[in-house]
Amino acid sequence: MDIFRSVVENYEGHVVTKINLVNDNGAEISCLTMGATWNEFLVPGEDGKKHNVLLNFDQPSEYYANSLCCCQSIGRVAGRIKNGQFTLNGKQYQLPTNENGNTLHGGDGGFRFLNWGYTTSRTENSVSVIFQKHIKEERDGFPGNFLATVIYTLDNKNRVTISYSALNGEEETLFNPTCHAYFNLSDRHDLTTHSLQINSHEYLQLDDELIPTGRVLQVDDTPYDFRKFKSLQQAIDENQGFDDAFVVNGPGMATEPIVVLRDNESGRQITIKSEGTGLVMYTMPEVADGVKFSRDHGEDAIPCEGVALEAQQLPDAINNENFGDIVLKKNEKKTYHITYEFTQK
């Protein structure tokens, strides 16, 4: 097990450090202090080379030249909060808004815009990087201050576990984090060889601004039925892309995966588990001009080049009953885990 560190860029006055974690199998991840970003998931191939199964950029500043939130830590609250408004303990709050009058992914002062302090640790079978930051009400507009911790751990089962924790202070607030990880497991420029399975019988109805209406729909006889493996690209073509939330779990950590993504050509597979109630899938139907992922070797990115699989509590949970509890009480500590296990078939 190895840990390496390097300074990669000075971005807007922030010294950005890259931390690489390597396991005994030769699998490797790298993370950036800026945004507590998951920068790479490098897996050994039969050709002796390492292949990155995440979409990423060469420089930290490139993550902020577009709105993809690519592989960054999202918080305090993932997804959209309608009108940036919610009521807590009888008091109505108005958050800063950043998309069509709604608050998306924690707003413009959210986790992904912060440069995090870090430490590292290792055990016999795993290596970790621990990011930590005091989250201030003055910075993001959410009520109250708390201590946030994001831990990336790589173990010898080629499994990455992301643990998000919040230790709250004297004012109740909200906490619903995720990692906005985009995957492409293939050696291709698209998702044509990918199959997907989602352990979900229901998905959320969304309005024109992608805000949940409160209605939960059955996946039967719709493009949203991924209960058995099926071609992801065919489903994308049928549905004209996805930016949707699937209902995946009840209380507690799922014993079964919430989603499995497989590349049929290379045999690479990612299995994801989470204790959250939701999985948001975004297939990137549009890409702004000038976006160039590292894997594209200077070529422009294309629509549907990767798929974001965001495990979390369901979006706008604070305004919808039974979508999951995202309230962080006074002096409470909450922790959420997401695991990503790589296998090669």
Score class of each variant (00 low, 15 high):
130 I>W: 01
322 N>K: 14
76 R>F: 04
231 S>F: 13
249 N>S: 14
163 S>C: 09
85 Q>I: 07
336 Y>S: 10
215 R>Y: 13
131 F>A: 08
332 E>F: 05
18 K>A: 03
79 G>V: 05
196 L>G: 13
25 N>H: 03
260 V>M: 03
288 A>D: 10
225 D>K: 07
279 L>N: 05
294 S>N: 01
293 F>D: 02
29 I>T: 08
172 E>W: 01
274 S>Q: 02
46 E>G: 06
25 N>Q: 02
317 A>R: 11
15 V>N: 14
112 R>H: 09
9 E>N: 12
247 V>Q: 05
14 H>V: 03
81 I>D: 06
171 E>F: 02
51 H>M: 00
314 L>T: 02
266 S>H: 06
93 Y>P: 11
298 G>T: 01
162 I>W: 04
332 E>V: 08
251 P>A: 12
172 E>I: 00
210 L>E: 08
166 A>I: 05
93 Y>K: 14
305 E>A: 11
319 N>T: 09
231 S>A: 14
243 D>L: 12
320 N>Q: 08
224 Y>I: 04
133 K>I: 03
84 G>I: 06
35 G>D: 01
30 S>C: 09
140 D>K: 11
88 L>E: 08
126 S>R: 09
148 A>E: 05
154 L>C: 03
107 G>A: 06
206 L>A: 07
229 F>I: 01
58 D>M: 02
242 F>H: 09
273 K>E: 02
311 A>C: 15
255 T>F: 03
325 D>W: 12
296 D>K: 05
244 D>N: 15
111 F>V: 04
339 T>S: 15
177 P>K: 10
269 Q>R: 14
63 Y>H: 09
19 I>P: 03
268 R>C: 00
